Simulated assay, not measured.
Amino acid sequence: MNKENFILSYIDRLKNLLDKVDTESISKIIDLLEETQQKGGVIYVIGNGGSSATASHMANDLNVGLKRRGIRKFNVVSLADNSPVITAISNDIGYENIFYMQLEDVVNSKDLIIAISCSGNSPNITKAVKYAKEKDVKIVGCTGFDGGELKQLSDVVFHVNAPKGEYGLVEDMHMILDHIIYSYYISLGNDE
Rank of each mutant, 00 (worst) to 15 (best):
Y100P: 01
A128Q: 05
V21S: 13
P123K: 10
I29D: 06
D61Y: 00
N190G: 14
S183D: 15
F99W: 07
P123C: 01
T143N: 05
K15V: 14
I113W: 13
G147D: 09
D191C: 09
K138R: 15
G65V: 03
K3E: 13
I125W: 01
Q102A: 00
N63W: 01
N82L: 13
S78H: 05
N63I: 06
A80S: 15
I89R: 00
G47D: 03
C118W: 11
E4P: 03
S122D: 06
I114Y: 07
K164Q: 14
Y185T: 02
I116T: 14
A55H: 10
I180M: 13
L17A: 05
I176G: 04
N82M: 11
L150I: 14
V140A: 05
I30R: 01
N190E: 15
V137Q: 06
L79E: 09
I46V: 11
K20G: 12
N108W: 09
A162Y: 04
S78Q: 06
K15F: 13
E35P: 12
I86A: 00
D31V: 12
Y131E: 00
G47I: 00
I71H: 04
G144Q: 05
V137C: 03
L62H: 00
Q102M: 02
G40V: 02
A59Q: 04
N48V: 05
N124P: 05
D146I: 13
M175K: 12
E149C: 10
L66I: 02
S83P: 13
K164A: 13
P163D: 15
